[in-house]
Design a protein around this nucleic acid. Structure first.
Length: 471
RNA sequence: GUGGCCAUAGUGAAACGGUUAUCACAGCGGGUUGUGGUCCCGCUAGUAUGGGUUCGAUUCCCAUUGGCCACCCCA
């Protein structure tokens, strides 16, 4: 559209301004701008998925007593550097960071936990009854190479609990997450692990490095790098050889102190009680610095119990969400030491999964009535009738820009409305209107004054009411 | 950041290096200005961008941009 106009205008201008022989044969049209890489328009055809996943997110979070909290999309860069950690991939190479006009470094938020912890400190929420519980739904930004289920701008639904260190908090979050997927009709499992505290991880790290050094020759090239760069990541390498080595590797859980081990056991007990399907995954580690103790991921389960549990099947599974405890975070941000835990779920991935398993998703509500008009006087009257119907709470559609009745009936048909109201010259004079049943093709003449009542009656009739929301 | 595959109307596809780039669907307009679904006719709209090879490039080569997929990492 814009492209078309641009072409015509510039072609015309060229002709008018330049002598015929100097006019270029082909006018150069600047290409229409595209969305930035890894970002996309979400079109109306996608709406039902978005309102479904957002709606269910909000309702379950509220049901569990979480309050809505929205933080700015931009934050001061140091917030993320301090919270997430300088050495992490997110901070090192994935942040959209820029300097604004006043020379301040700002960053498009790559996640929401740090901003929420920041808000907790800023607003002195330690004075509220603890713990405080928040949920959010909104866009996050990471400068990564786009891929299946991975975008540079993506949306997360997340829940955070601040101000309580008890294991039941960890369990509650996991349960809430699983229930959310239940609501959506997506079968998921939970993978869970405990990564202890920084001190324990440091000890474990040394042991792990020592172990892997002794098996260095069996490792892939990548893992040889990881050995020095990011030893914990050795554990989730998918290479055959590395997986074998992993089998004999020391496990982090064995390095936990009594308190942390006990905490972890308690979390698992709560999950057992709630019948939450989980798998202990000793190799699950989280990338962000602020995590401690419990870490977990929500992973999609095959709808039908597939026999294959091979490397292939596992590798294909990208997690739908994850989270964990982050007791050190608030203090890192300069607040009084306050424990916390939370999770984030990637909504694009959730929608992708909904489509993969063909889960039933409610249709977006559509107008049930179309108002067609013919002729000037009818058009004027139709505007008033439209408003009358709208105020009566009847979803009505109309196209006042179209004059031909035929064109309007075509639209009515495409919208799939149950009834069309037809208002022409004759009807205006007679004070009547035609109600046409689109499926049956029958129409009747009604008193214009009773139009709202008539339509309401028809829509209420059992036969005409289509159950559109399977829930 | 690394690698593989890819790029033709709004969408999906076609076009041995050779006239005017084809088709379907969608869109718009008609089929004597009062009736939709099916039908008929017409119109709109395209080789991502920039170079190169060639008498001639949608076709071959390079770069850029973007898409898909994998790695890395993560949601």
């Amino acid at each position: 559209m814009a492209k078309k106009e641009a072409k015509k205008i510039s072609a015309k201008a060229t002709k008018a301004e330049l002598p015929a022989e100097t006019a270029p044969k082909k006018t150069r049209i600047p290409a229409t701008p595209q969305p930035p890489r890894g970002m996309k328009d979400i079109l109306p055809v996608e709406e039902k998925f978005w309102s479904f996943v957002r709606g269910k997110a909000e309702s379950i979070a509220r049901a569990y007593g979480y309050d809505w909290l929205e933080t700015p999309i931009l934050e001061e860069t140091p917030l993320f550097v301090r919270a997430i950690g300088k050495q992490t991939d997110i901070v090192e190479k994935e942040m959209f960071t820029f300097v604004d006009q006043s020379g301040e470094s700002l960053t498009l938020r790559p996640e929401a936990t740090a901003p929420i912890a920041r808000a907790y400190v800023n607003h002195g929420m330690l004075n509220l009854p603890q713990p405080v519980k928040f949920f959010y739904i909104g866009p996050m930004f990471r400068h990564e190479r786009p891929q299946s289920g991975r975008y540079r701008q993506f949306n997360q639904f997340g829940c955070e609990i601040l101000g309580d260190a008890k294991p039941v908090i960890d369990a509650e979050l996991i349960i809430l997450g699983v229930r959310y997927f239940d609501d959506l009709g997506i079968p998921v499992g939970v993978e869970i692990n405990s990564i202890g505290d920084a001190a324990e991880r440091a000890v474990y790290r040394e042991k792990l490095i020592a172990y892997y050094r002794s098996h260095r020759s069996a490792l892939c090239e990548n893992c040889k790098l990881r050995l020095v760069k990011n030893p914990l990541r050795l554990l989730d390498c998918k290479e055959e050889g590395c997986r074998k080595v992993r089998g004999g590797a020391p496990q982090l859980v064995d390095f936990l102190n009594d308190e942390n081990r006990n905490h972890f056991m308690k979390v698992l007990e709560f999950l057992d009680d709630a019948d939450i399907p989980y798998v202990m995954n000793p190799y699950l580690v989280r990338g962000l610095d602020y995590y401690n103790k419990t870490v977990f991921e929500f992973v999609p389960r095959e709808t039908q119990p597939a026999g294959e549990v091979g490397a292939e099947a596992e590798a294909r599974q990208s997690s739908l969400g994850g989270g964990g405890r982050y007791d050190p975070l608030v203090e890192i941000l300069g607040g009084r030491a306050t424990p916390g835990a939370g999770f984030a779920i990637g909504l694009e991935r959730v929608i992708l999964r909904l489509k993969e398993i063909n889960a039933p998703v409610p249709e977006t509500p559509r107008p049930a009535v179309y108002l067609a008009q013919l002729g000037e006087p009818a058009k004027r009257k139709a505007l008033a009738i439209f408003e009358e119907l709208r105020r009566a709470g009847i979803p009505v559609a109309a196209t006042f820009t179209k004059d031909a009745l035929k064109a309007q009936m075509e639209i009515a048909n495409k919208l799939g409305v149950k009834y069309a109201i037809i208002l022409g010259q004759k009807e205006v004079l007679d004070g009547t209107m035609i109600i046409r049943d689109m499926d049956a093709g029958i129409q009747e003449l009604v008193d214009a004054k009773k139009i709202v009542a008539e339509i309401r009656k028809k829509l209420a009739t059992p036969g005409s009411e289509e159950p559109k929301l399977p829930s």
